[in-house]
Design a protein around this nucleic acid. Structure first.
Length: 782
DNA sequence: TTGCTACCTGTCTTG
DNA sequence: CAGGTAGCAA
């Protein structure tokens, strides 16, 4: 026993000291899995294993970074390869690109890229979408790739109608991707797996080079990932996998639970270590989690236990509706913070769908509580960012047809759908990329002279940009924005943009480029930047640096832990999701999802549901999740909704939280905000500084006339006049219309509206008070 | 041929 | 509620 193993339990040490031969670590939640993995690497290094012989594969960049950080504490600066499956495959494919028909500068299509590529392929295949939507076709093809089914094999299998449609699109789609020198996410795994299968010399070379392979979250591997790992562990079967069948939540994207359940069959000489002691949660939380997961049939029995001290009971709480839920949770967070028990970073709020974070967001913002949302509208998905990235993609890879179609008329250059369609037809006929087709525009006889001229000038612009390809990213981006007059384009078209600030996003992208230049002084190529961008996910943006409440989906929560956790909307049709209720396996996966959520909590946990919830416009009566009835009441406090407000009595206004309505009575939430601000103001502005935090989105309700923004700073600024101060006779000033007098006030909450007669031209306009940029000059009353 | 508006439809989780 | 599409005006 050396220094590395001395602080470990017997089971942990057993796993850490096992170097050669297959190893299966069944690691329950909070069992110190990362600790074991990093100590194991450190131990291997101390025993003479060379760092470049080790590769650790994870599912998220976050997990890889965590591993890297913790290993650096034990064995600083060792070049052990750590990263996601997708990044690993992307790098290998750069080396072996020609083996699968790609060039080394191939592009990685993101979801929306592959979606448009799919649509084009469906068209080109001449397939009708009346029996299968493009999404269904895409999903069938994705499933095929995850199971390493080639287009030829898929065509031979006479499956369901949607499959046979997909089988016809599949080869066309792959053909077009190859022509565009591009891959989708599934291809990264698929191509590399096929490469290993068809090229024994490459396989054995990598097997020998990477003698020690580790896979994290092995329960989430699909067949392609399984095959990749398997292929690299034939001559040197020193494969160590960690996982927990109870935390498998990616079945819907091809993960095969059998990979871990049958690991012992695949590798007969395997050593299996079970880590069952939990170091994270209180016994109460663990008991609830354990009782829940016992209802699953397809699992390996596991005894979870902890020596941690008893904690608070788990709270199961009912609310009237989603808004009350949001307000009450925000109040609870504020209260726990004021009581000095906790700070924002201690809290996490989990939900099944991203859409559910909206009301929470609003409630937290109203109280000045700093928060971060892990998904939402992702920075790299925003239109202006995607536009500029598309230019970069096209500069890096002239065959990138999806990028070309995005930028060819952005900013508008009078190259419309018809022209693009003809260009595409010509490209398809000649089997050339569309940019190449544009160069030969004069050969396209169906095309008007005008369109040909426009295409020519686009190609000229492109060639000018392309000359800058080897400059620094910052220079390239600035040149690009300048040459395309992109800012002017945004200013011209973005007048009605009410959320987000597109120009600020452009600046943010430039900052990201500057940062990348700085971090990669040597290898800072355009290609590396684009790969980086393609392979970061929303989940990876989680940072513990800022002191903020975290909102995220249950899927994103895996692998993380928080002292205090709320799981919201534990309701039938949401959790379990209604599309999962038909199928037993899917239902069990939903149960595991809740299990993952519960086991993130260290000391305090609340599960909640509402009596009714408004979903996509209308309000529905809610049935609590069946999972709630499976939980042991001994470790829980069940709290039903106290207030019994009659929903229909109040009409539509009920659907807005009370805090909107500052007119009638000062609501408790506002008081909470005041108190909290007095207590500690330092945390509040922080959220608005961090460029990588999703910006608080203003409520989407469109103002009737005004284009004024309801910005977060408006909501937070203490000098904001309460809406109740606006009444008939008040004199106000509007930035555009000048001074005027309120002639009429109607509505409540966000709908509270004032009619204003402006003195300048005697015109009368109507404004929503919550949104209009009005300055109150005289209340006109007492 | 382009660009805008109004309607319609689907409906989740992600590298 | 939001993105995509169809239909219409310029």
């Amino acid at each position: 026993m050396d220094a590395i193993t001395k602080n470990l339990t017997a089971a942990q040490a057993e796993a850490v000291t096992h170097i050669d031969g297959p190893l299966l670590i069944i690691a329950g939640p909070g069992s110190g899995k990362t600790r074991v993995v990093t100590h194991r690497v450190a131990h291997m290094l101390s025993q003479g294993v060379r760092p470049w012989q080790i590769a650790a594969l994870t599912f998220t960049n976050k997990a890889a970074e965590e591993m890297r950080t913790r290993l650096d504490l034990l064995a600083p600066g060792q070049p052990v390869w750590m990263g996601t499956f997708h990044r690993f495959c992307a790098q290998q494919l750069r080396r072996y690109a020609s083996y699968v028909g790609l060039a080394e500068n191939y592009s990685i299509y993101d979801m929306s890229d592959s979606k448009s590529a799919m649509k084009r392929a469906i068209q080109a295949a001449g397939v009708s979408t009346s029996h299968a939507t493009p999404e269904q076709i895409a999903s069938a093809i994705s499933n095929a790739k995850n199971r390493l089914i080639t287009p030829e094999i898929m065509q031979q299998q006479s499956g369901r109608a949607s499959d046979s449609v997909a089988a016809r699109v599949y080869p066309v789609y792959q053909q077009q991707l190859l022509l565009a020198n591009a891959v989708d996410f599934d291809d990264l795994l698929y191509h590399f797996a096929c490469l290993l299968r068809e090229n024994p010399e490459v396989r054995s070379e990598l097997d020998a080079k990477l003698k020690y392979i580790m896979v994290d979250e092995y329960q989430d591997t699909n067949l392609a990932q399984y095959a990749i790992v398997r292929a690299m562990s034939v001559d040197h079967p020193n494969l160590a996998v960690t996982g927990d069948p109870d935390q498998s939540i990616y079945g819907w994207r091809g993960a095969d639970l059998n990979n871990i359940l049958d690991f012992e069959k695949d590798y007969p000489s395997v050593k299996t270590v079970r880590l069952e002691q939990n170091y994270r949660s209180t016994p109460n939380i663990l008991a609830v989690a354990d009782q829940l997961i016992r209802h699953n049939r397809r699992r390996k029995a596991k005894e979870l236990y902890t020596e941690n001290a008893d904690g608070d009971n788990v709270i199961l709480r009912q609310y009237e509706d989603g808004y009350q839920e949001a307000d009450a949770i925000a109040d609870e967070i504020a209260a726990q913070m004021i009581a000095g028990q906790a700070e924002p970073r201690d809290f996490a709020i989990f939900c099944r769908m991203n859409a559910l974070t909206r009301s929470l967001e609003h409630a937290l913002r109203n109280r000045g509580l700093p928060y971060q949302i892990i998904n939402g509208v992702e920075f790299y998905q925003r239109k202006e960012v995607k536009d500029l990235l598309a230019y970069l993609h096209l500069i890096n890879n002239p065959s990138h047809d999806v990028a070309l179609q995005r930028v060819i008329n952005t900013p508008t250059r009078s190259i419309g759908a018809t022209t693009v369609g003809r260009l595409q037809a010509f490209a398809d006929a000649e089997r050339i990329p569309m940019l190449e087709a544009a160069r030969r525009a004069s050969e396209i006889d169906t095309m008007s002279k005008r369109a040909q001229t426009m295409l020519k000038s686009f190609v000229t612009l492109y060639d000018r940009l392309r000359k800058k390809a080897t400059a620094s990213l910052e220079d390239l981006l600035r040149f690009l924005v300048e040459e395309t007059k992109y800012i002017e384009f945004l200013e011209r078209t973005g007048v009605e943009k009410e959320d987000s600030n597109p120009i600020a996003n452009v600046d943010e992208l430039v900052s990201a480029a500057v940062e990348f230049d700085r971090m990669h002084p040597d290898d800072g190529s355009l290609e590396a930047f684009l790969e980086q961008v393609a392979l970061v996910s929303d989940t990876d943006k989680f940072e513990d640096s800022g002191n903020r409440v975290t909102l995220m989906t249950l899927h994103a929560a895996k692998g993380l832990e928080f002292p205090r956790v709320f799981v919201i909307a534990v309701e039938d049709d949401l959790l379990p999701h209604y599309r999962s209720k038909q199928d037993d396996q899917q239902l069990e996966e939903e149960r595991r999802l809740l299990f993952v959520g519960i086991t993130r909590a260290q000391q305090w946990l609340q599960l909640s549901y509402a009596k009714r919830r408004s979903m996509r416009g209308d309000i529905r009566v809610v049935i609590p999740s069946m999972f709630l009835s499976e939980l042991p009441r001994a470790d829980m406090n069940v709290i039903e909704s106290q207030t019994d407000r009659d929903f229909f009595d109040d009409g539509a206004d009920e659907s807005y939280p009370d805090s909107w309505d500052l007119v009638q009575e000062p609501s408790p939430p506002e008081q909470a905000e005041q108190e909290y601000k007095g207590d500690d103001t330092s945390v509040i502005p922080e959220i608005y500084r961090d460029p990588f935090v999703s910006k608080p989105k203003p409520k989407r309700t469109k103002p009737t006339i005004t284009t004024a923004l309801q910005t977060a700073s408006d909501l937070l600024s203490s000098d904001r006049v309460p809406l109740g101060a606006y009444r008939e006779g008040s004199v106000v000033r509007h930035p555009e219309y000048g001074d005027g007098t309120i002639t009429e006030v109607t509505g409540r909450g966000p709908k509270r509206t004032a009619k204003i007669r402006f003195s300048e031209d005697q015109s009368e306009q109507t404004f929503r008070l919550a949104f209009a940029k009005l300055e109150l000059l005289d209340t006109g009353g007492d």
